[in-house]
Amino acid sequence: MISLTIDGQTVVSPEGATLLEACRSIGKDQPTLCYLETLAPVNVCRVCVVEVEGSRTLVPSCSRKVEPGMKVQTESERVRHSRKVVFELLASSVDLSLVDDSVQEWMTNYQVDPGRFGDLAPLVDDRDERHAGHHYENTGTHAETVFQPVKVDNSLYVRDYSRCILCYKCVEACGDDAQNTFAIAVAGRGFDARISTEFDVALPQGACVFCGNCIGVCPTGALMFRSEHELRASDLWHEEEQTVTRTVCSYCGVGCNLELHVQDNRIVKVTSPIDHSVTSGHLCIKGRFGYEYVQQLGDLATTPIDDVLRRAREAGTV
């Protein structure tokens, strides 16, 4: 066991624990975006940084291991300042409207004001063609954003990269940390870096196996069920009316746990609990999307959302 202090409080943590785990063990949660228990830390979002005495810069608490005698500050002026600015930089360049409530609370806590960088730039459609190191004119009249058209190229899920904070979670879930399919990677560089298939081909033309594990880990709603996307677009997505029921997948014998999100007696989305030991939140195409056979939409009872769901399902692939 290793003893350290966090905000003056002595904490004893097991060897190999991270500062984040140590903080959480005493009820001091830290904001995170790119961190997930089931993925290897990439420490890129930098909202979890803390101050460690003797360290020139702040350190990411999600990956830094505890060391004996460490003195850690999570609420110092430096920490608050960095977190505030990092959130502002994100919020001024990415659509964060669908991040979960805890992140919104942190942003309120740090008095995040993304508007101070100017009006947000409108969407552009050339982000996938940008060449590393080639400069894209910056006049300063708007705060540059990643706003771009939604990628809709199959009937199961959409990619709305205007919401992408480049947390790498989808890449990890698609690759080494879960699916081992490697259909997507980060391409390009700098502000023009983006999640992409090879040469930006449509998902059905690439290696994607549509497990949707990328959706499962996405913290901002950039990756979304087609059904949710269409219902939102039609103003029919009513999360407050939805029930979430945990059950077991009806297909193979692995025993993956599913959380069925049901609205108007229709499954509108499927997730899986990351704290369940069988698959840690990861599913395959059948578990994630193969539920449609229990809802022959419109056959017997028509709900307000049936038409939209049917359209989404029958949209086909490009």
Binding site: Y251, C284, I285, G290, E292
Partner: peptide, 18 residues
């Protein structure tokens, strides 16, 4: 196939891109 199941009565219900 990855996206299919047995005689297909269940898996035919969704539109698999693969």
């Amino acid at each position: 196939h990855l996206d299919g199941f047995n005689t297909g009565v269940q898996s035919a219900g969704y539109d698999s891109p693969i």
